[in-house]
Amino acid sequence: MSVNVLNAGLLTTIQDIGRTGSQKFGVLVSGAMDSYSMRVANLLVGNEEREGVFEITLFGTMLQFEEDALIAITGGDLQTTIDGIPVANWRPLIVKKGSILKFGFAIEGCRAYLAIAGGIDIPVVMESKSTYLVAGIGGFKGRALQQNDHLSFGQLTESNEKVFARIEQLGTPDWAVPHHLLIRLTSTQTIRIIAGTEYQYVDDASKQRLVSEPYVVTPQSNRMGLRLEGKALLLTEKIELLSEGVTFGTMQLPPNGKPIILMADRQTAGGYPKIGQVITADLGSLSQVKPNAKLYFKLLSHAEAERELIAKEELINQIKIGIQQKFQ
């Protein structure tokens, strides 16, 4: 069971929930940018939530299946087709042997996730299948996919087979996961943040600017970080920090006053002032913004951020139970 890469597209990598546990050795976490979409894609085909999936960026990826396969596509809407016929996201589908799955151009969001029942048969490196591009570790040969790559699927589990059998019997379901509750795919977004560890050093006018002015995601943004353009933010005093831990969603302020938000491929430590922190519940939505998208920020309390995170986890639990019930 395998798939052939006819066109790798702009950037297609294998990602899972991330490579945690080795940051103390300088190893990046990596993982899916929009992990909510990644987790749901796996649940839809009966995989473990944390299994590796294809992360497809913006456009162009074309895959040919060499065997019948059960798949699900989530995340951004990249106008996906199978043999030229449009397919719907956020539900399980069967792709027939020889069929070509093609990702068009992103009309909503910018990253699609493709899960394949049985997962992807690649080595687990430091407990993860995620691709660590800079170090050439993990994923498929430590790199982004290229034309003519040949990826094998893993063995189907009982849970994969159950879904497979039902979809073969009943066809593509007419239901889809209510993804708008999980992530937003609009081109202008309000992203919720909480105060960062050095927020108190931001001057009052800049604090106001941060939550009222738009910030544009520049094309220099990538899986490491989003570089924002907008009115510069200032600190009340120059502060010298020693390198220390950072995390997904950390908003750093370099000396030019233009914030950078650290994303999945961030380094393990940083020395710039950390003025804000995107709440975990909004990281999926933030990962779906395209270059030149406009962002607004809203400040929440830490307790509110925790409540939003817990609500999203409970939503995923509900989605999981909902899917399981459909395939009983």
């Binding site: 945690t20 546990g21 940051q23 103390k24 020693l242 831990g245 995390t247 430590a269 817990i310 986890e313």
Partner: peptide
């Protein structure tokens, strides 16, 4: 608890708030 990362004078501790909850 997920992992911790030592630095010069600080320790970053990463965790799942949902599991703690």
């Amino acid at each position: 608890f997920i992992e911790s990362v030592p630095a010069y004078n600080s320790l970053a501790v990463y965790y799942s708030p949902y599991l703690v909850y």
